[in-house]
Structure formats: structure tokens, C-alpha cells
Design a protein around this nucleic acid. Structure first.
Lengths: 247, 247
DNA sequence: CACACCAGTTGACATGGATCAAGCTGAAGC
DNA sequence: GCTTCAGCTTGATCCATGTCAACTGGTGTG
């Protein structure tokens, strides 16, 4: 059975040196659109690479901000906590995506970033990134696009939370994951969820029982095959149709 | 009775020239933290100022993006439409705030920006802003903070939509408005809502009837006085308390 | 290998907010 | 001043999702 998600070993064998210029994610990540000389200048910036074990925090809300992080391999969630203990998962991030953009605003992180599997990240000191992007137009512009994309993504989540019913939310979630796995060269139809039902629920504004029931329902209707965290999408159009069906 | 919200006339009398350097919003808006010489260079960039009548679009989803906009006076909403007609208000923006950041990502606007009262905006051509912020470190950094702040704000809305009950959402909304009016030198306790109950509902993920009932309830309990769109906050702590009370 | 435990599933019931429906109110137009 | 209409309020009812509870299965550990 093919494995839809990268195992850490695969990556750590192919990427020996910490360098954007030989990272296989460069077309997804910050270096997008840079020429070779520019890439090498970006390499100088990214000195540290760090492993984060499953369950560990990359950063916590309230900590001082000085770097953003690019995910080289693995899977993260970010969440925000309210004083009374309620929490909201604000996103799931995978290889090639950036973490920590929320910290620029106040110079302190405003959410927690937690590894959902053993992961590897590149630290990018933010003030150095700003310096370099004053010199490299392409880098500046692409960084702005990345921040803007995050804003657009958030609007999508607001739409989801504000107007969709439970099954629509879950369908949208699965289709989004599928599309992001595809962009990374993995199967669009088969993957392992790295997060629990509770974390999915938190992200989608639902309780875990509701998520579980929706999974069962999708399975009964032949849209997907679920076996614990292993998901196979059997009928993409069925899922898409679910999303626009009103009541 | 004091008017908590600026009337257009007031502003247009005091601000004669289109220039950040003599705009009374400069401490809230993009020019924050710039010295005099830098301010003047920013002035050169902001050539056009435009009036938008109540109900008119500043931009529409799908239109090509080339500028971001600073609100000089007035009040806007942004919303996203789904194919099936559902829509979600993603934010309400007031003087000193920026509109259009969502367009950087794809070079097309991804939402609609609509004036909720007669308003005035400054257009800031984005490529020029990028050039200038390659030269003015402070401008670059502040722009990054503004984008990041938008991401943090969106996380707050996700929290609200994902975990709060109706009355908590409305209390959070009122407190947020109050705080933003205060930052602009208006009364924190008394203001006019520029949006309908339906628009509030869309933003908060509720139906207009639910919003209306929550207003009535707040009034019964003495937290606020509501008369149509005129709101007086009588008990800030009461509203704050509502937000953390679980079930 | 057995045990413990956590994640997930499923069922029964409760409820917050949606929906449907009827009236009310205040501002704008004639 | 009267009419009209969009926006708002309020009541009655319904339903999607939450809550509570019991059970199941898979995983890791001693």
C-alpha cells in the first residue's frame, strides 16, 4: 500500500545540507521565483535547522518573536487559547509552509505551534529576512504574497465557520488537504490524517462526535473510505457536491 | 447628544491636501513611525484620493489588484461570496485601516469592499509601496506589522466563530468596536452602528433574528442601551463577563 | 502476552440558534 | 402630514449539533 505522506527518513536522506538552493520544497516555500544567486544569499540567512518531536511546541503564545519558520518536513497545528480553557485550532501546516507570521505584529507569538509528527524546520531570523528583502525584490514580493495568502486562507476558514453546516465543513477540509498533498506530489486520494478527531473538530468549529459521525456518513454514502486516520477519497465530486448543497 | 462617529464634513474641512504628513490619522495608518522626510516620500506615492458613496464598491472580488487603500474617513465592510449565494462578512473597517491586502496573493481581489457610509480613501499603488519600502526600513517593517495584525485579527474571528455562543460573539463584537472608536478619539461608550443586523449576523455567523434577540437581552440585563443603530454601553464589565461565562 | 489507555464510534437525549411568521418603527419620499 | 418600505423585534416551532454515556478497537508498555 503506497504511503501518501512523506516519512522523515526519505527527506533527511535526500537533503543533506541546510540550504534552500538544494531543498526540494523551494518551489512551494519562501525561495519561490528566486534566481540562483539570490537563492544563495537566502541560504546564508537560514543558519539553523531544528528537529521538533511529535507533541513538542515550536513556539508558544506570548514568547518573544524573532524568527519565522519554514517546515522542511512534518506536520504542525497552530492554536489559540482563551483564558477559560477553550481553544481553537487556527490551522494545520505541512512541508513548505511558513509558521510564525502572527508574531510580527506584536513582536510576540500570539498562538502555539505544535508538531503533530516528528518534524524539521528552518529558522529564518525575521530582521535578516527584512534586510535581504530590501535588496531582493523577488524575495520581498513573494514574502508579501505569502502573507496575503494567509489572509485569504483565513477568510476561507471564516466562510466555513460562519456559513457551512457540519458535513460541508468536513468535505471542504478533506478537499483542502487533498489539494495540498497533491501540490507536494503525493496522492490526492489517499492520505493519513496527522490530527485527532478532536483537533479536526476544533479547527472546524465542531465537536469530535460530530466529526466522527460525518466521517461515518461519508463512508456510508461511498464518498470516502475511513480506517482510523487513513483516508481514501473514492468520489471527489461527491464531496464537492456536498459543499454547495443547501440544507 | 454627542455624535460618536466622525461626520464627513468635519474631516474634509480639516484635511485639505492629500498628504499623509498632515493627515490626522497618521499615527494609526501606514505612516506610523516614519520621520518627516520619510513621510514626505510617502506623500509622493499617494496621488489619488477618492470618495466612495454609501453602498458603492471600492473593489469587487475578481478584479485585478494593483493598489491597497487607506480609509481616510467613513466605514466599510468586506465580504466573500460563495457560488450558491451565501456570503460571509469578513470584516468591518474604519478610518486609518487598510483595505485590499487580500489581493496581493493572487494579484486579484478575493473579496468585495463596500462603503457602509459615504467615505474617502487614499489609493496606494502597491508596486510603488514595495519600492519605497525597500528604501525605508520603517515603512517596510510597519507594513509587515499591519499585515501580521490582520492575520492575528482573523485568528480572533476564527476563535469567535469556532468556540463562542451567540451572546459571547455579540459582546466581543461590541467591545471590539468600542475599543477601536476609543483609539480614534471617540467615545468608547456611545456610537452608531453603520451596519445592519443582518451584516452583523453574517460577520458573527448568526442570523439577524439571533443578533436582535441578543441585543434585547443585553438591554434587559442593563449592559447596553439600544435604540436602532445607536448603542450606549452601560456596563463594560458586564459585557466582558459575558464573554468568559461558559454555558 | 496481557493490560491499560486513549482515540474513535455510536446511541439517546437536550438545547441553542435557525426558521417561519406576524407585527412594529422610523426615515425618506410624495 | 401621510405613505411606504427596509430594517428590526418578538413569538412559536423545529432541527442540527451538542452533551452525556456506553462501548470498541488499536497501540504502546511492562
Amino acid at each position: 500500500m503506497p504511503n501518501a505522506v512523506p516519512l522523515n527518513q526519505d527527506i533527511s536522506l535526500t537533503v543533506i545540507k541546510t540550504a534552500c538552493s538544494n531543498c526540494n520544497l523551494r518551489e512551494l516555500c519562501l525561495p519561490y521565483g528566486l534566481d540562483l544567486e539570490e537563492l544563495e544569499r537566502l541560504d546564508d540567512l537560514i543558519s539553523t535547522r531544528r528537529r521538533i518531536k511529535r507533541g513538542d511546541h515550536l513556539y508558544r503564545a506570548g514568547e518573544p518573536f524573532d524568527s519565522i519558520y519554514a517546515i522542511r518536513s512534518g506536520f504542525f497545528k497552530t492554536d489559540v487559547l482563551l483564558e477559560d480553557g477553550r481553544d481553537q485550532v487556527t490551522g494545520f501546516q505541512m512541508a513548505g509552509e511558513l509558521l510564525g507570521l502572527d508574531g510580527i505584529s506584536t513582536e510576540h507569538h500570539t498562538c502555539n505551534a505544535i508538531a503533530l509528527e516528528d518534524s524539521e524546520i528552518c529558522s529564518i531570523p525575521f530582521s535578516k529576512l527584512e534586510s535581504l528583502s530590501r535588496e531582493i525584490h523577488n524575495l520581498q514580493h513573494h514574502f508579501h504574497k505569502v502573507m496575503s495568502r494567509e489572509i485569504v486562507r483565513d477568510h476561507g476558514v471564516m466562510m466555513l465557520l460562519g456559513t457551512m453546516r457540519a458535513e460541508e465543513r468536513l468535505a471542504a477540509f478533506l478537499l483542502n488537504l487533498s489539494q495540498r498533498f497533491t501540490a507536494r506530489g503525493f496522492s490526492h486520494a489517499e492520505f493519513y490524517l496527522r490530527m485527532t478527531r478532536e483537533e479536526i473538530g476544533s479547527y472546524l468549529g465542531l465537536k469530535l462526535e460530530t466529526v466522527s459521525r460525518a466521517f461515518s456518513r461519508f463512508q456510508e454514502e461511498g464518498h470516502i473510505a475511513v480506517q482510523q486516520k487513513h483516508i481514501r477519497i473514492l468520489n471527489v465530486n461527491g464531496l464537492k457536491a456536498l459543499m454547495s448543497q443547501r440544507t
